[in-house]
Nucleic acid binder design. Structure first.
Lengths: 210, 210
DNA sequence: CGTCCATTCATGGGTTTCACCGATTTCCTC
DNA sequence: GAGGAAATCGGTGAAACCCATGAATGGACG
């Protein structure tokens, strides 16, 4: 039985490329998506050995998706993919209890290695990441973890992308009231009461691009 | 003789994946690099039909590399790869005289299509690139860097800082109606209709910090 | 088991923004 | 001097957002 993998990345091209490379190595890709939330669902339905997840995705980001997957599909190990070792969310990702952490700047062989290592129960950290993490700890450049819950972070991200409350509610399959409640909670926790400042906060936290 | 392609992208994983996909389509990858400057050199030595270049690279970015390649290896057509259609460098990239423009969020088939189109002498623009940008590009009318008047820029800055229309009016000693008119004019000129997106625009244009 | 918190949804009312319509004055350019 | 853009101001009504408060559920943690 070959290793079953789920792929989640914003870029379809990346997914297709990785899929081709992994399948050449005899690893089966049982599902793929651009959306962290869908990654959680696909993990439940396909129950893959490993979920390979990009750190920055639109609807639900890597670390939060990793937490959900660990909670709902404990059998599935999570390997995080990131574009940069300096991403301020690296530490957050590590705290979310992932089994592997790989840079996209590395060769695909690195990912294959990581997948095989994780299957044996090891934790695989890309060498450049370990360095970055240690440095971050030492220099204290790590941003303090924001006080938001995963749901609130998810909502904030969509707010910062310009979606209206109604649009967010539809996207997340919530009532408008609930979405409003999340927004209120966000404003109250951060003590930020204008949309514009929320957007700037989200950009600082790298919840969205700009 | 198959089509000869050069790949330039920060992420080795992406390059390897694309290479696998392109070669499956009978397209030959004659070289690859993470570095825009090296892409220029490789274009000279290998003289490929097409250089597929990521828009954001460390040493020399996509548009600038495209200009150099056109100057030094005029036979080689350039196709730009980008992560987002809202990248502030989209226009710059188009002005640099590329033959194709593709989003990484699209399927790899799109890239293959683009490569084949460009080989036939066509220009291939991903459909998701903003209408306004494409129009400006095609008509050669070269959008101004920032179409806003000084007053509008001033108002936008304050909007992005989180001030309400009323606060802005008071600060600038204007009527609320005038301030509203400015906001309306800004939205219409930029074709951006949510505050959140306006804030991101302002940050990109360095009108405000974040 | 009780407490805290996240998540969900609601009522009701106030504020702000937005879209569409209109206008005048000034100033620059062709 | 006609045309155009910038800057100034106004009305109206719909949509979106903000605020205070309340409350049910369920999971986590001591």
């Amino acid at each position: 039985m070959s290793i079953q993998v789920l792929l989640a990345d914003d870029h379809q091209m990346m997914r297709q490329g990785l899929k081709a490379l992994l399948e050449r190595e005899g690893i089966t890709v049982v599902g793929e998506t651009a959306d962290g939330r869908e990654a959680v669902l696909l993990s439940q339905t396909h129950n893959p050995d490993i979920a390979v997840i990009d750190i920055s995705m639109r609807v639900l980001n890597g670390p939060d998706a990793a937490r959900e997957i660990r909670r709902l599909s404990p059998r599935t190990k999570v390997v995080i993919l990131t574009a940069s070792a300096e991403d301020p969310n690296v530490l957050d990702a590590l705290r979310s209890g992932v089994s592997g952490y790989i840079l996209k700047t590395q060769a695909a062989e690195e990912l294959v290695l990581a997948i095989r290592d994780v299957m044996r129960g090891c934790v695989y950290l890309s060498p450049s990441v370990s360095r970055a993490v240690v440095d971050a700890f030492r220099s204290g450049t790590d941003l303090p973890r924001d006080p938001l819950s995963p749901r609130e972070r998810q909502v904030l991200r969509l707010v910062a992308e310009g979606l209206s409350t109604k649009e967010i509610a539809t996207l997340l399959e919530l009532s408008v009231r609930t979405t409003e409640a999340h927004r209120r909670q966000i404003r109250s926790k951060l003590n930020i009461h204008e949309t514009a400042s929320l957007v700037r906060y989200a950009i600082r936290r790298r919840l969205v691009e700009f």
